[in-house]
Amino acid sequence: MAHTLPPLPYDENALAPYVSAQTLSFHYGKHHTGYLNNMNKAIAGTELESLSLVDLIRTVAKNVEQKTLFNNAAQVWNHTFYWNSMRPGGGGEPGGTLGELIKDSFGSYDEFKKQFITAGTTQFGSGYAWLVKDGEKLVVTKTPNAETPLTDESKVPLLNMDVWEHAYYLDYQNLRPDYENAFADNLINWEFAEKNLERVFAG
């Protein structure tokens, strides 16, 4: 059965001025939908069609000959995760369990933010910055293109920030760090990240 995209979790203009409605319209309506269509076309009529999205990604990740399918499938998952990593009125220092874990892992929220932004800025070309749970600690990582921590089952992704140029070029042009700062200060959906953490704790 063909996969479908969940709707954006907010209106297209909900993240403005940090991410514009125009950017979200292209990003969700063209890029994300494009990856979905390419993936569905590639798996149609094959046994891969019966797999869940996560199982599909983990299965084809092991086969270099299925790189194109991996790229499209992983981008379907990465983007849904990215939409949920943001919310209107988000960002800033989190409290609760996550706030404590961030202090334990990075020393301070500011140190986390610095590492997260550096990861995004130094991801040369297209890719993502991530906050992941690795054992009992949280760590910041970066991945090129469609690569995703989902394929490393020892790590649990908590949130991601898309640094493909299409994620910010209409709004920030070459100023990727400005986008990253706006993302950290005004968009991060810490409730989503905390939910991912609880899911892990629940096994």
Binding site: T118, T121, T122, N174, R176, P177, D178, N181
Partner: peptide, 24 residues
Amino acid sequence: ALLPTAAEAQITIPTPTITPPTVT
């Protein structure tokens, strides 16, 4: 206390890694 941190976050890039085209 906060302002220098925010400014620093934009421009601090470790030298051994590739620095991207997006730095102001």
